[in-house]
Simulated scan of single mutants.
Amino acid sequence: MSTDRTTADRTTTADASEAAAQEVELLRRLRAFEGRPAATAGRGKDPVNAPMIRHWCEAMGDTNPAYTGPDAIAPPTMLQAWTMGGLSGHTGHTGRSPAYDELLALLDGAGCTSVVATDCEQEYLRPLRPGDEVTFDAVIESVSPRKTTRLGTGHFVTTRMDVRANGEPAGTHRFRILKYAPAAKRPAPPKPAGTAGPQRPRPVVNRDNQGFWDGVRDHRLLIQRCTACATLRFPWLPGCNACSSPDWDTVEASGAGTVFSYVVMHHPPFPAFDPPYAVALVELAEGVRMISNITGVPYDKVRIGLPVRLEFLRVDDTLELPVFRAEAG
Results as ranks from 00 to 15, higher is better:
173 H>I: 00
199 Q>R: 15
300 D>F: 04
298 P>Y: 04
2 S>L: 12
19 A>T: 06
328 A>Y: 13
241 N>A: 14
85 G>W: 05
262 Y>D: 06
7 T>N: 09
266 H>I: 10
22 Q>A: 11
250 T>Y: 13
314 R>D: 15
106 L>T: 03
172 T>N: 00
59 A>Y: 12
14 A>Y: 07
251 V>Y: 05
222 L>P: 13
244 S>R: 12
126 R>D: 01
182 P>I: 02
50 A>N: 11
270 F>M: 15
43 R>I: 14
296 G>E: 05
1 M>N: 14
50 A>T: 15
299 Y>L: 04
156 F>I: 03
254 S>R: 08
90 H>N: 05
97 S>R: 12
89 G>S: 10
282 V>Y: 09
40 T>Q: 10
145 P>D: 09
59 A>C: 07
315 V>A: 13
266 H>T: 12
150 R>K: 14
272 A>L: 06
155 H>P: 00
327 E>D: 13
322 P>T: 05
221 L>C: 11
12 T>C: 08
27 L>Y: 00
201 P>L: 08
310 L>F: 09
105 A>T: 13
34 E>P: 03
164 R>W: 11
69 G>C: 06
163 V>S: 01
123 E>N: 04
260 F>S: 14
158 T>V: 07
31 R>D: 02
53 I>W: 06
161 M>G: 02
245 S>D: 04
119 D>V: 02
212 F>V: 03
282 V>K: 14
311 E>I: 13
109 G>S: 11
111 G>E: 02
224 Q>E: 15
100 Y>G: 04
224 Q>Y: 09
116 V>S: 02
